[in-house]
Simulated assay, not measured.
Amino acid sequence: MRMTSIKMKKKLEDRLNHPEWNTSFNRDKDTFRIEWKHSRQGITVTIPNIIAKFERRGEEALDELEDHIGEALRIMNQTNQLTGKEKNIFPVIRATSFPKKTKSGKMMVWSEHTAETRIYYALDLGNSYQLIDEEMLEKESWTKERIEEVSSFNVRSLSRDLKHDKVADNDFYFMAAQDGYDASRILNESLMEEMKANSKGELAVAVPHQDVLIFADIQNKMGYDILAQMTMKFFAEGRVPITSLPFLYEDKHLEPVFILAKNRPEK
């Protein structure tokens, strides 16, 4: 028998019963909201999406959802300090369409990167992270320059293990450490220079989503086609998509490229 929105609402109410949380169901929008009673901060989930996951994976999907909601609400309700946690501050790459303000109106700390990407900064909390806003800096008298410096140092300390694949005489290297900062490694200048020094042809790089970084040592025209298809596929599948455009890396500079079939990229 098919799961209805009302039945799923009841399941969620049972699972998310917490003395300090309110839950509510919006029948018109078919959404379910969980929020802290004292602050009204919370998250809203879409019932049909949850039903689809439940019908594929059963109670395991709801276990996972419960964990994610609990973690999200926990982070919302805690006050995090930067001082003393310098080693846990990392840069994260996002699309330029990513909001510059939080939903509560706080301005994020961010820096320019490319025409397609922007750098934000995160405080790592273990199982998740919190994007750093200007209010956090002001409270602790930190400057944006200090955040940039600390995060730049920390990204260089991340693992550099790359998986290699050769396709049509082109070399592709993949970073997928699954630590939340795979794409961030594009900001590790020593890694970028090392890859450039070891490339036989032109070095291209792609950050289609947060959890992958692709290097391509392009040695023939087919390499561009392969990279374009690969980047688009990853972009479509990513949990946090960034950009479907790869970049050429030349003279310590990233240039977004539009790849035309069987042609060198047009800038």
Score class of each variant (00 low, 15 high):
209 H>N: 15
224 Y>N: 04
230 M>D: 00
211 D>L: 13
218 I>F: 02
244 S>Y: 12
241 P>S: 07
182 D>Y: 07
204 A>R: 00
207 V>I: 15
239 R>H: 14
220 N>Q: 08
241 P>C: 09
188 N>F: 06
201 G>C: 06
203 L>Y: 03
202 E>L: 12
243 T>P: 04
197 A>D: 13
225 D>G: 11
236 A>T: 10
235 F>Q: 01
224 Y>L: 03
189 E>V: 11
196 K>G: 00
232 M>D: 06
180 G>R: 08
201 G>Y: 04
183 A>F: 05
242 I>S: 05
216 A>E: 04
188 N>R: 05
231 T>K: 00
237 E>N: 13
200 K>Q: 13
239 R>C: 05
232 M>I: 02
205 V>N: 11
196 K>H: 09
196 K>L: 14
190 S>P: 02
200 K>W: 01
224 Y>T: 05
242 I>A: 07
236 A>M: 13
218 I>C: 02
230 M>P: 00
218 I>K: 01
182 D>P: 10
241 P>L: 11
181 Y>L: 10
183 A>I: 07
242 I>H: 10
211 D>I: 12
179 D>L: 06
210 Q>L: 14
224 Y>K: 01
198 N>P: 01
185 R>A: 04
219 Q>W: 01
222 M>I: 11
188 N>Q: 06
206 A>F: 05
187 L>T: 15
234 F>Y: 12
202 E>F: 08
240 V>K: 13
201 G>E: 11
213 L>E: 12
201 G>V: 04
188 N>K: 06
226 I>F: 14
245 L>E: 04
242 I>L: 08
192 M>A: 10
191 L>P: 05
243 T>K: 02
246 P>T: 01
219 Q>F: 02
206 A>H: 03
219 Q>E: 13
204 A>Q: 04
224 Y>V: 03
185 R>V: 05
204 A>D: 04
214 I>F: 07
189 E>M: 15
218 I>E: 03
191 L>V: 08
202 E>R: 08
184 S>W: 09
210 Q>G: 12
218 I>S: 03
217 D>G: 05
188 N>W: 02
227 L>H: 00
199 S>M: 12
208 P>I: 09
202 E>V: 14
204 A>Y: 09
218 I>W: 00
199 S>H: 06
234 F>R: 03
236 A>F: 06
214 I>R: 04
210 Q>M: 15
234 F>N: 03
185 R>Q: 14
184 S>Q: 10
243 T>S: 10
244 S>E: 14
215 F>T: 08
196 K>N: 09
196 K>A: 13
183 A>Q: 09
193 E>P: 02
198 N>D: 12
189 E>H: 13
219 Q>C: 11
246 P>E: 01
223 G>Y: 01
183 A>T: 09
187 L>P: 03
207 V>F: 06
243 T>F: 01
247 F>C: 04
213 L>T: 11
230 M>E: 02
181 Y>D: 08
181 Y>H: 09
231 T>R: 00
184 S>T: 14
222 M>P: 00
182 D>M: 10
205 V>T: 11
183 A>V: 05
200 K>I: 12
232 M>K: 11
210 Q>N: 15
187 L>A: 10
180 G>H: 09
208 P>Y: 07
238 G>P: 07
221 K>N: 13
189 E>K: 14
234 F>L: 02
248 L>I: 15
195 M>F: 04
198 N>W: 03
213 L>V: 13
234 F>V: 00
226 I>W: 07
221 K>Q: 14
231 T>M: 00
